[in-house]
Amino acid sequence: MKRLALQLFFVLALPLLLVTAWWFASDGSTDVYWPPLRTILTTFPDVWTGEQLRADVLPSLLRLLAGYAAAAVVGVALGTVIGSYRRVRAVCEPVLEFLRAVPPPVLVPVIILFAGIGDTMKIAVIASGCVWPILLNTVEGVRAVDSVMTETARSYGITGAARLRHVVLRSASPQIFAGLRQALSIGIILMVISEMFAASNGLGFTIVQFQRNFAIPDMWTGILLLGLLGFVLSVLFRLAERRALGWYHGLRDTSRRSS
């Protein structure tokens, strides 16, 4: 219980400190573009009603999850193949480095040409940015699989899908989850950017509409909601990672105690 309370303190301490600093720094502000935090918090429940959440936040989350899931499947699958075979890696690495250097927002006009302006375009934009950290981390994780472990599995007749599941992916899973964690923040950014182009709903669309109508406190509530959404998704991902990599964190904790 004490350990859980300490972890909760470390998670919430900095956000609470920043919110407190924002409250006092903006208190008494008369700048139309920098309203007091008190005004923003008062406006928040009036703007983000249950209907508004269903109309804008839910579609954004569904697009984010769809693009993120597609990137995870493609990234892990391709990364496993590229990381497992040296010749494939030698052929693909120059192309991957070139494509990784292209910022995903630049691809939005190109994706619109092929996918239109619907949800498919937005999901494609999210997936195109999320796939790179997952793919590259998977490649490095597969490359780093212990050769002794691989030879031991081969000597015991563990081959094919069993070897891939129990040896390769399990050994590379800490690195894969590191890529998934990086991709989550990228996905949230691209979710907002994609909804600023030819959209009719979503968080990005709504925030831009508030800005164009000079509803500045409403715009700040959208930004605040976006930050809260990112925080909640990060906490949920950390819990899922802790559960999936329980064996890995257990080994690390054991090695720390022994040293």
Results as ranks from 00 to 15, higher is better:
231 F>C: 12
13 A>W: 12
43 T>A: 13
100 R>Q: 15
246 G>C: 13
90 A>T: 12
177 F>S: 10
204 G>M: 01
232 V>D: 13
194 S>I: 01
112 I>Q: 07
78 L>Q: 09
163 R>I: 07
104 P>L: 00
169 L>G: 02
225 L>S: 08
206 T>W: 00
104 P>C: 02
249 H>D: 15
235 V>M: 12
237 F>P: 08
215 A>D: 15
17 L>F: 09
43 T>E: 15
52 Q>H: 06
153 A>G: 11
208 V>D: 04
143 R>Q: 15
48 W>T: 07
79 G>E: 06
248 Y>H: 14
157 G>K: 08
155 S>H: 10
94 P>A: 05
57 V>M: 04
34 W>T: 15
174 P>M: 08
11 V>T: 11
133 P>H: 00
90 A>Q: 15
151 E>A: 03
213 N>F: 11
112 I>H: 01
117 I>M: 09
104 P>N: 10
205 F>I: 05
21 A>E: 14
231 F>I: 11
41 L>P: 08
154 R>K: 15
180 L>C: 10
125 V>Y: 02
65 L>V: 12
85 Y>C: 10
157 G>M: 05
141 G>K: 02
234 S>K: 12
136 L>Y: 05
240 A>Y: 04
229 L>G: 01
70 A>W: 06
245 L>Y: 09
148 V>A: 11
117 I>F: 05
221 T>G: 03
139 V>T: 08
51 E>L: 08
197 F>W: 04
84 S>V: 00
151 E>F: 06
178 A>E: 13
44 F>H: 06
214 F>Q: 12
74 V>C: 10
247 W>N: 14
59 P>F: 04
204 G>E: 06
103 P>N: 13
35 P>S: 05
28 G>A: 04
223 I>W: 03
97 E>R: 07
22 W>F: 00
176 I>H: 00
151 E>Q: 03
61 L>H: 05
182 Q>K: 11
163 R>P: 11
191 M>L: 12
100 R>E: 14
7 Q>R: 15
79 G>A: 04
125 V>D: 02
143 R>T: 14
140 E>Q: 15
144 A>L: 01
55 A>I: 02
168 V>G: 04
45 P>K: 04
117 I>Q: 11
115 A>P: 01
8 L>R: 12
22 W>N: 08
189 I>F: 06
30 T>P: 04
26 S>Y: 01
